[in-house]
Computed example of a mutant assay.
Amino acid sequence: MQNIFTRGALFLAGSMVLSSALYAKTETLIVHHFMSSKAPTHTKLLMPWAKKIEEASKGKLKVEIFPTMTMGGKPNELYKQARDGVSDIVWTLAGYTPGVFPRTEVYELPTVHKGDSLATTIAIRENMDLIEGDYKDVVPLLIHAAAGNAIHTVNKKITSVKDLKGLKFRTPSRSGGWLIEEYGAEPVGMPLPALPQALSKNAIDGALVPFEVFPPYKFHQLTHYSYEGVNKERFGTSIFMMLMNKKRFNKLSPELQKIILDNSGMELSKFAGQLWMDLEEPGKKMQNKSKDSEVVKFDKKTLDEFDKAGQKVVDKWIIEAKEKGIDGQKLVDTARETISKYSK
């Protein structure tokens, strides 16, 4: 009789283990972004990250990625989708929601960001304690920089700042709009996916964007001139961010939270920073090889003229930050020092 009870107990215990294994809950994380499924953001950043998360969790986490705003809404609504839980995770631009990330904005500024996305992204990660106040409502998984804005024009060749006077330029951000105004041009705000049509219809005369967007959006067919400094200096940049809904994160087990954070630290920042540097060259080559198009490098004298306008933007930003109770000068000084330390 005792053997029968022992065997029964063992059978029941085995059944419970098997049942637990069969019915163990898989947590599915939804990622939403505005780029196409063929864009490097999707294929080279988000998909590899999702695979690492799934493998590290041994199937306890599943990541589903929805590109091209297929879950609905507009690109400038992505931050709200993450904050409000419409999406678990989003990849978006800080510039799409002006005023929401007042501290992070320092890394967008011209003359602060020089043109090295790796150096700027490492600096952001190293100084997260100075900008963490921007992320009270979400969990920041990755904050990273583009290589930087080059100046692109549809038809007009530029030799100095004064040549930009009166032109209409797409701005990638609030600070980018200030810079365009300092150039004497008119800033026009619009999401990146709307830019090709605006250029093709001559609704605007040019744009501030990095070369990495040329392949997916065919900008080499829409602009004749592109400009950067002699040492690849740029004119401000855009800051990208991968943000997670805080409640969704907190509902995960400590084990799964750790897996996400372990795969979203400095290693991911360095990977993203270098990736965006590498993405510049194909677009630049497309522009150089395109018929009647060229990439012009400003000499130091001309670049100094553009940087003078850029410094005015920085000064304006510091004053505004102070009005918000933020030590803008400290943020600028720290950002410049750290970026310089990691610049090649």
Rank of each mutant, 00 (worst) to 15 (best):
4 I>H: 04
17 V>L: 14
20 S>Y: 09
23 Y>T: 06
23 Y>R: 02
25 K>L: 00
26 T>L: 00
27 E>S: 06
30 I>Q: 02
31 V>G: 04
39 A>M: 14
41 T>R: 06
41 T>W: 06
43 T>H: 02
44 K>H: 03
46 L>P: 01
47 M>E: 10
52 K>Y: 01
54 E>I: 01
54 E>G: 01
56 A>R: 10
69 M>P: 01
73 G>I: 09
75 P>D: 07
79 Y>A: 06
79 Y>Q: 04
85 G>H: 06
85 G>M: 08
86 V>P: 00
87 S>A: 13
89 I>D: 11
90 V>C: 03
93 L>P: 02
95 G>Q: 08
96 Y>Q: 13
108 E>A: 14
112 V>M: 12
112 V>W: 12
114 K>D: 01
116 D>Q: 13
119 A>G: 06
122 I>G: 07
124 I>W: 05
126 E>A: 05
127 N>F: 05
127 N>Y: 09
132 E>P: 01
134 D>C: 03
135 Y>H: 05
135 Y>E: 09
136 K>W: 06
136 K>V: 04
137 D>A: 13
139 V>T: 02
156 K>C: 14
160 S>L: 05
169 F>N: 01
170 R>P: 00
170 R>E: 08
175 S>Y: 15
178 W>H: 11
185 A>C: 10
187 P>H: 09
189 G>K: 14
191 P>C: 08
198 A>P: 03
205 D>R: 04
206 G>N: 04
207 A>N: 11
221 Q>L: 14
222 L>H: 05
223 T>F: 01
229 G>E: 03
229 G>A: 06
231 N>M: 12
231 N>Y: 12
239 I>A: 03
245 N>W: 04
247 K>Y: 02
252 L>Q: 09
254 P>K: 12
257 Q>M: 08
260 I>N: 07
261 L>Y: 04
263 N>A: 03
263 N>P: 07
264 S>L: 11
265 G>H: 10
265 G>N: 13
274 Q>V: 04
286 M>K: 07
299 D>H: 05
300 K>G: 02
303 L>C: 01
303 L>P: 03
310 G>Y: 09
315 D>C: 06
317 W>N: 05
322 K>M: 02
328 G>F: 13
331 L>M: 10
334 T>W: 03
335 A>W: 12
338 T>V: 15
339 I>C: 10
340 S>T: 12
